[in-house]
Nucleic acid binder design. Structure first.
Length: 216
DNA sequence: CATATGATTCCA
DNA sequence: GGAATCATATGA
C-alpha cells in the first residue's frame, strides 16, 4: 500500500497502553503501526542509511498467563519465560519450530505472564508492497526482528516501537492458531484481525460473530 | 543425559 | 501429508 507517512509523526505508545489484560491489548493493537529501524551495523553506519520500516499490524493473538494452557507462561518462570513474566511494554521474542522468530508484546503487569503475539502486518513504509508479512515467522523475517531483540523496551524510543492507529479497523475474532494441544483453551476467541486486510495470515479465517465484549 | 515437541512455513 | 531444525522442558 505504501501510503505516505511521516516517520517523524510516529511516536511510541506509552507504557500505560500495555498495562492492560492481553485480551484488551491484542484487540487494541490491530491497526497500530510497528516501526523498526534496520539493525545497526555498528558505528560505521551511524547517521546514514537508517530508514525506518513501518508496517501496520493486522492480526494479533492474546496469551493470558499461566492458567492459559496455550501460553508459554504455563510452565512458570524459567529462563525462557523470564521476559514474558517481566514488565509490560517490552518485546518477547522466541524461536519456534527451530526456525522462526515470533514477536510478542508483554502486557498487563510484571509477573502476570501476559503477552500479545503479532501474527501479521502489512507493509506501509520501507518495505516493498509485495513483501510477505502475513504470518508470525514471515513478519519477523521481513522486519529483521530476532531473538537479539528479546526483552527490548518498546516504549523508550529504541530500535522498535509501536505507534497509535490512525483509523479504526473493522475487527473480526476467531480461535487462536496452532494451539490445538491446549484443549479447551484452544477454542477461546482470542485472535483478532482486520476484516478488510489482505495481509491476514489465514485469509477468510472463520470469524466468531461480532467482536465479543472484552471481559477480564 | 535422552527425548519429545512446538504461538510455522514450504514443498510434494 | 511431511520435512526442516533447535531451544526448551521434562523425566530418567
Amino acid at each position: 500500500m505504501n501510503r505516505a507517512v511521516e516517520p517523524e509523526a510516529l511516536a511510541p505508545l506509552p507504557r500505560a497502553y500495555f498495562q492492560r489484560d492481553a485480551l484488551v491489548v491484542a484487540r487494541a493493537l490491530v491497526g497500530t503501526r510497528l516501526v523498526v529501524m534496520p539493525p545497526s551495523n555498528g558505528p560505521a553506519d551511524r547517521g546514514r542509511g537508517s530508514v525506518p520500516r513501518v508496517a501496520r499490524i493486522v492480526e494479533t493473538e492474546a496469551y493470558r498467563g499461566p492458567r492459559d494452557l496455550a501460553c508459554h507462561a504455563r510452565v512458570g518462570l524459567t529462563k525462557r519465560t523470564r521476559t514474558l513474566y517481566g514488565p509490560p511494554g517490552h518485546a518477547y521474542v522466541f524461536l519456534i519450530y527451530g526456525m522462526y522468530d515470533c514477536f510478542n508484546v508483554v502486557s498487563f503487569a510484571e509477573g502476570k505472564g501476559h503477552a500479545v503475539l503479532v501474527r501479521a502486518v502489512e507493509p506501509v513504509v520501507g518495505l516493498p508492497d509485495a513483501t510477505s508479512t502475513a504470518g508470525p515467522g514471515r513478519l519477523t523475517r521481513a522486519l529483521e526482528i530476532t531473538r537479539a531483540d528479546d526483552a527490548v523496551d518498546l516504549v523508550s524510543g529504541g530500535r522498535i516501537f509501536i505507534a497509535a492507529r490512525d483509523r479504526r479497523p473493522r475487527i473480526a475474532v476467531s480461535a487462536r492458531v496452532g494451539v490445538a494441544y491446549a484443549g479447551a483453551w484452544a477454542d477461546r476467541p482470542w485472535r483478532f484481525f482486520d476484516r478488510d486486510s489482505a495481509h491476514v495470515s489465514r485469509p477468510p479465517a472463520r470469524s466468531i460473530g461480532r467482536p465479543t465484549a472484552v471481559r477480564a
